[in-house]
Design a protein around this nucleic acid. Structure first.
Length: 198
DNA sequence: AAGGGCTCCAACCGCCAGCGA
DNA sequence: GTCGCTGGCGGTTGGAGCCCT
């Protein structure tokens, strides 16, 4: 995609794939000044890019300690379970997978896991399939949200999942949290009492 | 070998919430 | 209170590369 630059006084930014040179400029600037005020980053780093584009590039590609590709079975399983619980809240899911970005998880879900689940849904399953529920759960979550805002939702119990799991704390990808989550996920009380997470 | 269809993923877009003036 | 700016998020798109016929 070539930048369109003629006939407009409005600033037109570069679009499309980032070059190695652009990456280097951005990384250098952030190394010195930090990753904050993306508009300033975009201007001061001498990149003809908008702040949003710089932010995205940094978060999804240039950030240190980033893992790319090779999603392990454990990670896949965790993604499936978290998606079952949280729906398409990719940033929350990514927050539980160190080094993974929301974009990567979203892409992985759309290209791998959603198909996997569709295949399983098509084949008749008698067991308690964990992967067949996401759509229903998202609907439940939305319904709970709706109910909580209107004040009429008193069927079952609802949690604020952010509060409950304390998503504010970074780097807590420990067995403790995972175990807590997995225990909850399989707790019959949860299903019996129609508990949903919002 | 070629070309058409498919897959995957980087990047963009639009919306929304938070915050300061 | 409201307005504009900014950052963050999820959905969507476009193109490069792969696969199949």
């Amino acid at each position: 995609m070539a930048p369109k630059n003629e006939g407009s006084a409005k600033k037109v930014f570069n679009k499309g794939a980032w070059t190695a040179e652009e990456d280097q400029k951005l990384a250098q600037y952030i190394e010195i000044h930090g990753a904050k005020k993306w508009k300033t980053v975009a201007i001061k780093s001498d990149l003809n890019r908008c702040g949003k584009s710089c932010r995205l590039r940094w978060l999804n590609y240039l950030r240190p300690n980033i893992k790319r590709g090779n999603i392990s079975d454990e990670e896949e399983d965790l993604i499936l379970r978290l998606h079952k619980l949280l729906g398409n809240r990719w940033s929350l899911i990514a927050g539980r997978l160190p080094g993974r970005t929301d974009n990567e998880i979203k892409n992985y879900w759309n290209s791998h896991l959603s198909k996997k689940i569709n295949r399983k849904e098509k084949t008749p399953v008698t067991s308690t399939s964990q992967e067949t529920a996401p759509a229903k759960n998202v609907a439940t979550i939305e319904a709970e949200k709706e109910a909580s805002t209107t004040g009429s939702g008193d069927e079952g119990v609802s949690f604020d999942v952010n509060e409950f799991f304390d998503f504010s704390s970074e780097g807590t990808y420990g067995l403790e949290w995972v175990n807590k989550f997995l225990e909850l996920d399989e707790d019959p009380w949860i299903t019996e009492n129609n508990v949903t997470f919002v």
